[in-house]
């Protein structure tokens, strides 16, 4: 009995590469075949065309889809709008999340920290659709809660449209921004703050020179979530966007009648997100996800 065990252990011990292969083959297959493979297939699809009548994909090579996407001015507006929404959403999330995360990590007594984390996470448990429809009710132009709240100030509610989408998306993705920043704040060693104070730095200087550089990668990490999630969203735009379209809506509207065209459109957010990731990789954010 002992001999067999020893041999067995010895086999894996003597073949470390086999061991590694056994461990990684399943996840790698998933990543390469299912994940990257489908992206590649999507990319290839963008070069085909459809039958005018039956909408069936015809495997004839063409640049027409990309040409249509990049030369029809109607789509510039949508790309610009979508990116603006994603950037603005990210910005609002940062503005809210940084003080909130600081408060949670450094001010609140430890026993309440868990409660606050739970409160931040709770909305994630509710259905996405329920939350968006709730915002639809709140954003209602004349009788919604927000319009009612703004009435005494003589301002009308934002109604459905650009601002409505930004507000709703900011609400939806806020937890994804709060959590990484909270982690960064709670990891911040007290000794560093002490050292900064000992060297004569005031609060502002400490924040700029000590706290911010440590927290910054986490902010970028959070922004990757909020930015890319906003970029691909289409249901929020449908419900609170009035007549505005985002890129996701264009894909949704065309993927059945013209799959190759939808594939070409869906390459735009992929390229934008890749560019974004490329731009932020030096900040160290990718180590903080």
């Amino acid at each position: 009995m002992t001999t067999t065990t020893a041999t067995h252990r010895g086999f894996w011990y003597r073949h470390p590469k086999l061991q590694l292969a056994g461990l990684l083959s399943a996840p790698m297959a998933w990543l390469v075949v299912v994940y990257l493979g489908s992206l590649l297939a999507l990319f290839l699809t963008a070069f085909w065309q459809v039958n005018d009548f039956t909408s069936q994909v015809e495997r004839t090579f063409t640049f027409r889809n990309f040409q249509e996407v990049f030369t029809n001015p109607a789509y510039y507006g949508t790309v610009f709008r979508t990116v603006s929404i994603a950037l603005l959403t990210t910005l609002i999330c940062i503005v809210i999340a940084v003080p909130l995360a600081f408060f949670m990590a450094r001010v609140v007594r430890p026993r309440y920290q868990a409660v606050m984390i739970a409160m931040i996470l709770t909305p994630l448990w509710a259905s996405y659709l329920v939350k968006v429809y709730a915002w639809r009710a709140m954003l209602q132009p004349e009788s919604g809660v927000i319009a009612w709240f703004l009435q005494p100030f003589g301002i009308g509610g934002p109604g459905y449209g650009f601002i409505g989408i930004v507000i709703t998306l900011s609400y939806l993705w806020l937890p994804y921004m709060v959590l990484p920043i909270y982690t960064a704040f709670s990891r911040l060693p007290n000794s560093m703050l002490d050292a900064s104070a000992d060297l004569g730095a005031r609060n502002g200087r400490t924040f700029r020179s000590v706290v911010f550089p440590i927290v910054f990668p986490s902010i970028v990490a959070g922004s990757i979530f909020t930015f890319s999630l906003s970029l691909g969203d289409y249901i929020t735009a449908q419900i609170v966007g009035g007549k505005l379209l985002m890129l996701g809506n264009v894909v949704q509207q065309t993927y059945v009648t013209n799959l190759p065209f939808a594939a070409a459109v869906s390459m735009i957010p992929v390229v934008i997100v890749l560019a974004y990731l490329f731009a932020v990789r030096r900040s160290g954010a990718l180590d903080n996800l």
């Binding site: 489908s38 290839l44 699809t45 993927y255 059945v256 799959l259």
Partner: peptide, 11 residues
């Protein structure tokens, strides 16, 4: 549709 069907058609 974006991934699987594209893939099926491709494959």
């Amino acid at each position: 549709a974006a991934s699987a069907s594209a893939m099926l058609v491709a494959a």
